[in-house]
Amino acid sequence: MALNTPQITPTKKITVRAIGEELPRGDYQRCPQCDMLFSLPEINSHQSAYCPRCQAKIRDGRDWSLTRLAAMAFTMLLLMPFAWGEPLLHIWLLGIRIDANVMQGIWQMTKQGDAITGSMVFFCVIGAPLILVTSIAYLWFGNRLGMNLRPVLLMLERLKEWVMLDIYLVGIGVASIKVQDYAHIQAGVGLFSFVALVILTTVTLSHLNVEELWERFYPQRPATRRDEKLRVCLGCHFTGYPDQRGRCPRCHIPLRLRRRHSLQKCWAALLASIVLLLPANLLPISIIYLNGGRQEDTILSGIMSLASSNIAVAGIVFIASILVPFTKVIVMFTLLLSIHFKCQQGLRTRILLLRMVTWIGRWSMLDLFVISLTMSLINRDQILAFTMGPAAFYFGAAVILTILAVEWLDSRLLWDAHESGNARFDD
């Protein structure tokens, strides 16, 4: 018995066209964080690309023209004298008006014999932002004059995390709450300039795509075929072959399989920071003279006294001054041990922890910024005066060393310790 099946006739004509040209192939790229070699397709503007294995951002879609970056830099340069030299806060102490600005706080630190601690604050609040705007201006002028731009481009990517104007702005709020127990506070004209400078700096850093600047100024022929001998440069993120001198053909720094002496430098910085954190938390970090009496505060006791007036601000200072430094030390110690013992479990967790400490590390400088600003506000000789204690130097040095330890660690070593050939990683 035959089955009668109805015929289905399409209502619209289906047209099949042959592909007349070869589909576009992607360029081969190595991930600078996990060293995976993959094919990167062509990316349009405002599109980002991520590593298929570790999800690290390979290409950032946010990109401004150099002219727009230069305009932002010149605007920031105009704001800087007002943000640093004009009063941020006014207080009335014992019937006398006192003005506080950024430069005055750094000068008070240096004047009291601790120039190293003052230079830490100076670099993060004044030096690094000033280098940022002058570097962008150098790129703008240098591109037109045919100057060598490689050193500036190499420095810009590392400079971003040292620009800490946003953290200093939080420190202004913390210092205001600490001082309000002794005097009446009012915002100064410099505060508005400083807030504007923070906003412009944040926007500029978020749109400063150094890798795209490398592509514009020093374009290189990408690798179009897969080759395990391809290496990625950690300076400019170019994937290719080393030249005859073993250097990256684009930025001219040595092109090595792994960062040289990464573990040794990381261990040295980490152990030194552990040693410095002990006096930083045991010795007094601030000293207040009130009517001839002397009151010393460690980091913890200062947080407890701050909690009596504002528990939320005390929580912020606790996280930045105690929780973050010790968390960074514990995480980095764990990561280094996992590399030495070739741990194969929990790779995803370790990668996330490394990215976390990379982002939060700079916030530990908050305590030094609060001390710097408070020193310029309260300084009335023996009637009422505020000065920093010996722990300030140890704390600042420990924070900087932990930042350097994270920067010096080559994250690809975590993958080397893991089993080879993993296309995915999980716990």
Results as ranks from 00 to 15, higher is better:
R259G: 12
I19K: 11
A115P: 08
L205F: 08
I96N: 02
Q382D: 00
R294Q: 15
L384S: 02
I303E: 03
L347G: 15
Q47N: 12
I330K: 08
V324F: 15
G396Y: 04
I91E: 15
L205N: 13
D426I: 12
A417M: 10
V370C: 07
R150M: 05
L213M: 14
D60S: 10
E215G: 13
D114S: 09
W359T: 14
P242L: 09
M375F: 04
G173F: 10
I303P: 02
L3N: 13
K342N: 10
T349H: 14
A392H: 01
T239F: 05
K265I: 01
T224N: 07
R231A: 09
R97E: 03
I136N: 02
R294K: 09
S420C: 11
S273Y: 02
T9P: 12
Q382S: 13
I299F: 08
A49M: 12
L300H: 10
D426H: 14
F393M: 10
L282R: 04
Y218S: 05
L384H: 02
R53V: 11
W415F: 11
F82T: 14
R412D: 00
H252G: 04
L373F: 02
V195E: 03
D410N: 00
L149D: 01
F393S: 05
F141K: 01
K178H: 04
M332I: 12
I351E: 10
I330E: 02
T67G: 12
V324D: 02
H261C: 03
L165S: 10
N422E: 10
A272D: 02
V331P: 06
D60Q: 08
W107L: 10
L191Y: 03
P52C: 08
V16K: 14
L276V: 04
F333T: 10
Y218F: 03
A312S: 13
V357D: 10
T387V: 12
G113F: 06
N143V: 15
F217R: 13
I167L: 01
R62G: 11
C34I: 00
V133Y: 03
D181T: 03
K265P: 02
F194T: 11
N209F: 07
A187P: 10
L282E: 04
A73C: 11
D27W: 14
L156E: 05
I311V: 12
I172D: 01
C31G: 00
G118I: 01
T349W: 13
D416V: 10
E86K: 13
L257C: 08
D426W: 15
I351N: 15
F194N: 13
S321K: 00
L384F: 10
A71P: 01
N101C: 04
N148D: 04
M164C: 04
P279Y: 02
I378H: 00
D99F: 08
V232R: 08
N291R: 12
V133P: 07
G142R: 01
P129A: 09
V195Y: 04
I371Q: 01
G61P: 12
G26I: 14
Y138S: 05
L277H: 01
L277E: 02
C124M: 10
P249V: 06
I131G: 02
P222K: 09
L277S: 12
Q295L: 09
I58S: 09
D416F: 08
I98H: 04
P129N: 06
F141T: 03
H237P: 02
P81F: 05
L3F: 11
E86A: 10
T358I: 13
T349E: 09
E419N: 09
F74K: 04
A183N: 15
I316T: 15
I199F: 13
I316E: 00
Q344S: 10
L300C: 08
R350K: 14
P284H: 05
I378Q: 00
W64T: 15
D99H: 11
L283N: 04
T15G: 14
P249Q: 07
L366C: 09
G171H: 03
C251H: 00
V317F: 13
R294G: 03
D243H: 08
T11W: 13
T5H: 08
L197C: 02
R158K: 11
T239W: 01
A269G: 11
K328Y: 00
I14F: 10
G171N: 13
S45Q: 13
Q33K: 15
A397I: 05
L270R: 02
S39K: 08
S45V: 14
Q55P: 14
T387C: 07
T201F: 10
I126W: 04
M72W: 02
L93A: 03
W408F: 06
D367L: 00
H252Y: 06
R294V: 04
D410I: 00
L306I: 12
L154K: 01
I371L: 12
V179D: 08
I167Q: 06
I126A: 14
T387D: 03
T327A: 10
S65G: 11
A71Y: 03
T201E: 06
V121M: 08
I339V: 07
S286L: 02
H418L: 10
I106K: 01
K12D: 08
Y289S: 01
T201M: 07
V317A: 09
D166W: 15
Y138G: 04
G188A: 06
Y168D: 06
L153D: 00
Q186R: 14
P279D: 06
R412V: 00
D427Q: 15
S48W: 15
P87I: 10
M120R: 00
H46R: 08
P325F: 02
R362G: 02
S301T: 07
F341K: 09
M80L: 07
K229L: 08
N209P: 08
